[in-house]
Nucleic acid binder design. Sequence first.
DNA 1: TGGCTGTTTGAATCTACGC
DNA 2: TGCGTAGATTCAAACAGCC
Lengths: 378, 378
Amino acid sequence: MIEEVKSRAKSVVKTPETARALDLPLGRILPGDCIAAMRSLPTNSVDLVFADPPYNLQLGGDLNRPDGSHVDAVTDHWDQFASMAVYDKFTREWLTEARRVLKPDGGLWVIGSYHNIFRVGSILQDLGFWILNDIVWRKNNPMPNFRGTRFTNAHETLIWASMGEKARYHFNYRAMKTLNDELQMRSDWVMPICAGGERLKENGKKAHPTQKPEALLYRVLLATTEKGDVVLDPFFGTGTTGAVAKRLGREWIGCEREDFYREVAMKRIEKELPLDESALTTMQSARTAPKVAFGAVVEAGLIPPGTQVFDKKRRWIATVRTDGSLECEGKTGSIHGLGKDLQAAPSCNGWAFWHYETGDDVQPIDAARQLYLLAAED
Amino acid sequence: MIEEVKSRAKSVVKTPETARALDLPLGRILPGDCIAAMRSLPTNSVDLVFADPPYNLQLGGDLNRPDGSHVDAVTDHWDQFASMAVYDKFTREWLTEARRVLKPDGGLWVIGSYHNIFRVGSILQDLGFWILNDIVWRKNNPMPNFRGTRFTNAHETLIWASMGEKARYHFNYRAMKTLNDELQMRSDWVMPICAGGERLKENGKKAHPTQKPEALLYRVLLATTEKGDVVLDPFFGTGTTGAVAKRLGREWIGCEREDFYREVAMKRIEKELPLDESALTTMQSARTAPKVAFGAVVEAGLIPPGTQVFDKKRRWIATVRTDGSLECEGKTGSIHGLGKDLQAAPSCNGWAFWHYETGDDVQPIDAARQLYLLAAED
DNA sequence: TGGCTGTTTGAATCTACGC
DNA sequence: TGCGTAGATTCAAACAGCC
């Protein structure tokens, strides 16, 4: 049996029931300003924040300088500076609320372009968030630069951060590797822009100018949340985050000030169907890094007690014992520990270090672990 | 003293003579701290600043690969800063000097990673620079994430900025489009890291831990400078900027406080040969570069009829025919079409797929296309 | 010489858990 | 919260060496 992953999955804690006990407005879009809306949420209650903040400076209504004076024309350098200060203040405020609402092991994602992402990145670092990666969404079909004055702006940037340098966070390494054809998922993601049937339209016009592709949210949520986690999107728009969260069995909360977007989003999410339990469970088991004890592989008879295992160059030959430990030249230990000791190395991955004979072939004992995993799925 | 800028090309203004009249230390590496060194340069005198500042990596303990080998990390003293505030102050100071030294129509490039680029981007915006693009250097061979804790950090970010929102700047749109097979050059550039023969070594050890690939500087300088322009690199290191500038007929000035790096850089740049006049003229020509048919390359004798071309692994060897088509195992077709058919692939870039022998070297046939383009116009 | 195999290496904020 | 220990973890490209 695959042993339960206790700490990372935290399946006990992360149930919708727990979330509801905190009186979270799950599956709802809070109206009004997102900063005020987030203030109504309890502290340490949310597992992930995904934010797609505006980066034009029209933050609704007139612009005001930090001292309250009115900014009338964004033309001269002072006014650029003033409007930038307004944007920074707004950014600091919503990030501060996001930080309060997040659990200590929660995650933060923000997407932006060169107009705003440097402001956002600096401010979230100043607030104590710890950047884990910056991700580049490389667009397959970007808008060309019609005037030929710059490089075609063919990407957007996402920042993924934890609550602090020492904070825990969730990363489903295996799921990402599986998604990427058994190679580590990289920091550059190639995806088309949102178009075609996925693009929401009302009366033939696109409902939202910057609707994000569902594939983007799919990867974000699969990588950094568990089933049942609560995802908050402070700039909900037409609800891509909510739609994908519902599909993947995650709980969601949105904030959106525009009535029209809230209506479109609710209509959209109602139509969304969650993947059924078995699909999610399969995904879950594929995702939670299946820790297999070598002892279980021995127990299953894939590498019986007494088998000789050896390093690639056969400098050391060890004997497998009933409890899954190894014995070599009078020393004993786990597959990792003994490999480490014999080589006098700082560390050793026993699965890759030790080999065994399979018929006419020699393979790392990791091959037996793979067989074990295949058998365990049925 | 500086003449008014009238046109984009400004070939009359941008001569080394003008620069020398300003007493610029062209072709020299200024020792000591770059901020002090830049203070010795006249105001409004430089056309481009390319900066590869310390990233402030803030690494933890040692890191080993899964095979137990040790990762040679960037632990040099020049990358250590006491705090983010100290790093910000340093960044503001060198950017301020860069701004003073730059001409009103000058350009600024900075390269960094998520550790520092958000600080740099924010500060340069605060100083009045106007971001024109952020460019993503997507590495096709990055270092993996050995512990499986995050996404593979597979890119670095460059910021390209002008002196202000209304400032003029230089962008060689046509040269970029030609370089990109007649498609607009995008904001994501795929290039390998600096390795192999290009990587400078002293006594068998790498001379500099973070040497940048010449291809990167080549594209930067070709895109945003003219022949004869003055390029300043405040973090010169082993002189990639200087080497490529010299090759492309640009003037250069470096700042570098480490004696060892200065020595290595000067030795390197002395060996560098400038491209000849006709090649440079072609490169900055604003005239429409024709899309090159492989047949034209054959016709020009760069790859004569009868030449054997082959894929990198030499699975297929084809013969070049007079009309620029290929023949292999009884099949014929264009460089793209035959490559596609042989591999049973959905598409194939024949310029990159087929290779040929050049003296003692093997190169993609695209190299011949580049030669053709250089020679095509006087 | 050539093909094959094994080794080395690169801007990296790189573990989890129990006591 | 700090420390000790068990356990898990890599991709592409350039070289070097060997047959």
